[in-house]
Design a protein around this nucleic acid. Structure first.
Length: 303
DNA sequence: TGTTATGTTGCCAT
DNA sequence: TATGGCAACATAAC
């Protein structure tokens, strides 16, 4: 039995995230959170936590600064959430690998690995929990928000992310295409799962050199990225971990995953039937089809 | 009981 | 500047 059972039995959960958050998961979280918190006033923030979660700041100091602020909006860039506050500052939250955000009544018991609680009016808490303590909750000034947003790459589901734009990003790059797609400074929001899915859908080997992709391949990749992200969103951001959740609360996107998690189970490629393979690229476990995703550009027979 | 893997990012060395 | 490796951390799974 997985210890996450407590989440499922918590009747106060407006939103439960157990999946590793990539763009579809963070966006799903934003959509579920936004109507419940926009317009509310922050009372304070409390918690017993590790120093780095708030960038080394003391909770009491941040609490004093936040108190009295109204949450005017909740936006997302890549995998970052921005809570826009009435004094112009922002609360930035990144869940990294195991971060959780859950709405709960003030008197509800702590969630597992709870580190911080943002206290809102109406006796509502936004609880932040993180098993591995990689996640961050930072109170930042407008100038720093701007600086950060400039460092984050293009949003892959907007019109700005065209095939032409992708081509520009890849041109002259010697890194493996998978590493490039995971670089948040170039494209925002892709993680290990959706990158593997997109590369398989586009029939591109993850170790191909980014700058060596043909225009046709770039075009396929562009469409594949948008498609797998949209599918993830449509399925409410559910990903692989919940597929394995012993509690049975499964999202829907596991049914759409074409390679991720299937290689380890010796399952066949859904396109060609050949067994899928595992590989480590840039230190990340990589799932691919050795038949559909060849390590060199495809050439028409006879050429 | 130990060892290994885990979906992210930032920092550091080259 | 580009690139690649690894640490940060705690737990589950083997």
């Amino acid at each position: 039995m997985r210890s996450s059972l407590v989440y499922h039995t918590n009747p106060y959960d407006v939103k439960v995230k157990r999946d590793m958050p990539e763009l579809p998961e963070v966006e799903t979280l934003r959509r579920s959170l936004r109507p419940a918190i926009v317009g509310r006033t922050i009372v304070g923030i409390r918690g017993e936590t590790f120093p780095d979660v708030m960038g080394g700041e003391l909770i009491d100091e941040v609490s004093r600064r936040l108190a009295g602020n109204q949450i005017e909006d909740l936006t997302r860039r890549g995998k970052y959430l921005f809570f826009l506050l009435s004094d112009g500052s922002s609360l930035l939250i990144h869940l990294r690998m195991t971060g959780r955000l859950i709405l709960a009544p003030r008197d509800a018991p702590p969630i597992r690995f709870e580190h911080l609680a943002l206290e809102l009016d109406g006796e509502l808490d936004l609880r932040f929990g993180d098993q591995r303590k990689f996640g961050r909750v930072l109170h930042i000034l407008p100038a720093d928000v701007m600086a950060l947003r400039r460092r984050i790459g293009v949003e892959p589901l907007t019109a700005r992310f065209s095939a032409r734009r992708l081509e520009t990003l890849l041109t002259g790059r010697n890194s493996k295409i998978k590493s490039i797609l995971l670089d948040q400074r170039l494209i925002a929001g892709l993680g290990n799962i959706y990158v593997d899915e997109a590369l398989h859908l586009a029939a591109i080997h993850p170790e191909r050199r980014a700058g060596a992709l043909s225009q046709l391949e770039i075009s396929r990749l562009h469409r594949a990225i948008r498609r797998v992200l949209r599918e993830g969103l449509r399925n409410r951001g559910t990903s692989f971990s919940s597929f394995e959740d012993a509690n049975g609360e499964r999202g829907r996107n596991q049914h759409q995953l074409r390679v991720y998690g299937r290689a380890r189970k010796n399952l066949p490629c859904l396109r060609c039937g050949h067994p899928l393979s595992l590989l480590v690229v840039g230190g990340r476990t990589t799932h691919y089809c050795p038949t559909c995703q060849l390590p060199h550009a495809y050439t028409e027979p006879g050429n």
